[in-house]
Nucleic acid binder design. Structure first.
Lengths: 359, 359
DNA sequence: CTGAAAGCGCTTACAG
DNA sequence: CTGAAAGCGCTTACAG
C-alpha cells in the first residue's frame, strides 16, 4: 500500500491541500461538512500526515523523548509507564532512547536532542559520569541546548547552582525512616550495604547513606564507618549481583579481620531492594537467616519486596507521583521556557514486611 | 543557543549548501580539505542536521522503533539492551514506543508506523489481542503497511500463513525439558501453573503448556487436566501477582473439593520465573516448603531465579541470540523487502537450581 | 469558509 | 570537486 500524501487526498476530495491540512488539524475555519468529508476520506485511504514534513514546517513537536541511561530495571519501567500515561493524557507522544554507555558522552545526548525531533526531554535514571567534574560539565553543556529538559529519579549534577529541574524520591528521608524503624525495633549495630566509590553527594546511594547517618544520629547511635559496606560492583550498584557480591566480600573480610565487625551486626540496610535480595542469598549461604539472625531492609518497593519470603521491609517509591510531577514540570517548561528551575523531592512510604526482627 | 542550519554553516565556511551536505554525509566527491574544514566548523558551532528535513528528503531513515506492548518486565529489558547494541553496531538508531493498551488497536500501531519516522519496526513482547480473530485481523492490517517488521519473543498471529518473520525462544522445547527434568527426578504428579483463558496456540503460555504435555508423554505420565492451574490474573499472566493469586486459589479450591487434587502434587512448573516467585510465596503461606514439600521450576532465567533462596531451576532465554537474530532478520528485510518470511525458534538452556527435590 | 503561494532545512541530479 | 536549483510534504499568512 503506497504512502498517501496530502496532495493526493486533496485531489480525491476535490479541495485544495490547505483545506485538507486545516481539516486534519481541527482548525475552526473549515466547513464542518467539508471537514467530515475529508476526514472520512483520510480514514478510508489510511492517510497519515508525514511527521517529518509537519515537524519541519512547525518547528516544534508534540513528542517527548525519555533518555534512559545506565542501569535499567523494574523501577524505571514503572516510572516509564506512568510517564507515558501522563503525557498521553496531555496529548503528547512519548518515545524512549536508551543510552547503554555508562559514561555517555555529552555528544550522544546532544545529538539526540539537537536533531530536533523532540519537544521535550526527560532524563530518567542515573545520568552522566560518576565523576563529579565530568558530570557537571555534561550538565552545563546540556543547559546550552535549547530544549526543555527535566531529570527524573536523578538530581541535577551541575554543582552549586541547579541548571535543570529534577524530581526524585526523598532518598535521604526514606533511608532515615528505615534506620529509625530498625532502631525502634531495638537494633543498634546497623550496616549500610552498597555504598559507591566516589564521594558524590547527589547519587541515590550517597543520599541514602546520608539518611542512614541522620537516622542513626536521631536514635543516638554513633556512626561506625566500618559498618558501611562498599559496592563490589561499583558500575551496577543497584543490582542483585552487587548486593550478593558485596555481602559475600564483607562477610569473608569480617571473618578474617581482627574484631570481626560483622559478628555483632543485627540489621542491614541495603541500598535498594535488588541489592537486598542479593544480600539475602549471600547471608543464607553463610548460614544466616533473615530475620532470625539478621534483619534486612531494602529501598524502592518493587514487587519482589512484597513477594519475597520473608516479605522485605522497604520504602516504596511513589512512582505515579514522580511521573506526574515530571510530566507537569516538563510541560510547564515547554509552555514557558524561562520558568524557574524546580527541585522536587517526594516522600516515599515505609512498607513493613517480615524481614525485621524485634530485639 | 540558536539552532544552526546548513545555510548558515555554508555561509560561515564560504561554500554552497550542497557542499556542506556532501561533507556532512561523507560523500566521496568532496575535497578532503574542504570536508575537514566544514566538519570542524560544524563541530565548533554545534551544527546537527535537522532530522526532519533530512528524512523528508531521503524518504527513509536509519532509525528502528521497537514497539513494546502489554507487560513490560525484566526479560524484555534485557532483550532491548541487546537489540540496541546490535542495531548500533550496524549504524542504526533505535527508539522505543510502549503501547500500554493491552488490546492495542491496529490504528495506534498504524499511526506510529505510517508517520514515516522509522525505517523498520520490531514488535517486542506479546502483541495484539488475546482474542485469536482480532489478532489475526491486526496482523493482516500490519502486513499491508509498507514497512519492514519483525516480531521478537512473540510469534505471528496471522493464522495459517505467517505474514511476518518472528524470533522466539523455543517455548515448547524448554517446557518439555523442564518436565523431563522433573520426571527424571522421580516426579509424576506435576502441575502446570499459569494457563491462560483462551485456547490460543501461539501464546507463550500455550506453547509452554504444550511442551509440558509433550514432556509428560515422553515420560509415560498420563496428562491430568485437573493439574493445569489457570491464571487468576489473565491480563497479566507473566507476573508475580498472577503466580501468587493463582496458587492461592488453587490451594483453597483443592482443599475444599472432593479428592483434594493438590495433595499429591509433588512439583509445579510455573509459566515463568515471576509467576514461580509468586507461587513460592503462596506455597510458603500454606506451610509448604520449596523443595522439601513441593518442587518448583520457572522459565526465562531472570536474575531473580539465580538469587532466590532456593535458587530456581529454570530455562534461560537466550536473550543475546534472540536480539541478534531479530536485528539480522530485520536488516535483511530492509535491504530486501521481498525476502521470505522466517520463523526462528532458539533453544533455551536448562539451568539447574535448588528448587527440585529428588524423590 | 477556501485556495494559491511561499517556505521550513535538507539532498541530489544536473551543469560546469 | 563545487554550485545553483528543484523539490520532499506539510502549514500558514494572505487574498478573496
Amino acid at each position: 500500500m503506497a504512502e498517501m500524501t496530502i496532495k493526493e487526498l486533496a485531489r480525491i476530495c476535490g479541495v485544495a491541500v490547505s483545506t485538507v491540512s486545516r481539516a486534519m488539524n481541527d482548525r475552526a475555519d473549515v466547513n464542518p461538512a467539508t471537514r467530515a468529508r475529508i476526514r472520512a476520506a483520510a480514514e478510508r485511504h489510511g492517510y497519515v500526515p508525514n511527521a517529518s514534513a509537519r515537524r519541519l514546517k512547525i518547528g516544534t513537536t508534540r513528542t517527548i523523548t525519555v533518555i534512559i541511561q545506565g542501569e535499567f530495571g523494574q523501577l524505571l519501567i514503572e516510572v516509564l509507564e506512568h510517564l507515558e500515561a501522563a503525557f498521553a493524557r496531555a496529548g503528547y507522544d512519548m518515545t524512549m532512547s536508551h543510552i547503554a554507555d555508562q559514561n555517555a558522552h555529552a555528544a550522544t545526548v546532544e545529538r539526540i536532542v539537537r536533531e530536533g525531533k523532540y519537544g521535550g526531554v526527560v532524563f530518567l535514571g542515573r545520568y552522566g559520569s560518576a565523576d563529579r567534574e565530568e558530570a557537571a560539565v555534561l550538565s552545563r553543556r546540556l543547559a546550552e541546548i535549547d530544549v526543555p529538559m527535566v531529570f527524573c529519579t536523578t538530581p541535577d549534577y551541575s554543582g552549586s547552582v541547579a541548571l535543570h529541574s529534577s524530581i526524585s524520591v526523598d532518598d535521604h528521608g526514606g533511608a532515615r525512616d528505615l534506620t529509625t524503624h530498625l532502631a525502634s525495633h531495638g537494633h543498634r549495630r546497623i550496616a549500610f550495604l552498597g555504598a559507591g566509590a566516589e564521594p558524590d553527594r547527589e547519587h541515590a546511594w550517597a543520599l541514602r547513606l546520608a539518611g542512614y547517618r541522620a537516622g542513626l544520629e536521631a536514635a543516638g547511635i554513633p556512626f561506625d564507618p566500618s559498618l558501611v559496606i562498599g559496592s563490589a560492583e561499583p558500575d551496577q550498584i543497584y543490582t542483585m549481583v552487587n548486593g550478593y557480591a558485596s555481602t559475600k566480600r564483607w562477610l569473608s573480610e569480617a571473618d578474617t579481620s581482627v574484631g570481626g565487625e560483622a559478628d555483632d551486626v543485627t540489621a542491614v540496610l541495603a541500598v535498594c531492594d535488588a541489592a537486598a535480595i542479593g544480600a539475602a542469598r549471600a547471608l543464607s549461604e553463610a548460614g544466616l537467616r533473615v530475620p532470625d539472625d539478621v534483619s534486612l531492609v531494602g529501598f524502592d518497593g518493587l514487587d519482589i519486596a512484597a513477594y519475597y519470603v520473608p516479605r522485605l521491609t522497604t520504602v516504596v517509591q511513589p512512582v505515579a507521583e514522580l511521573a506526574q510531577s515530571t510530566a507537569r514540570v516538563l510541560m510547564s517548561t515547554m509552555d514557558e521556557p524561562e520558568r524557574a528551575i524546580e527541585q522536587v523531592w517526594i516522600r516515599g512510604r515505609l512498607q513493613s514486611g517480615e524481614s525485621v526482627k524485634t530485639l
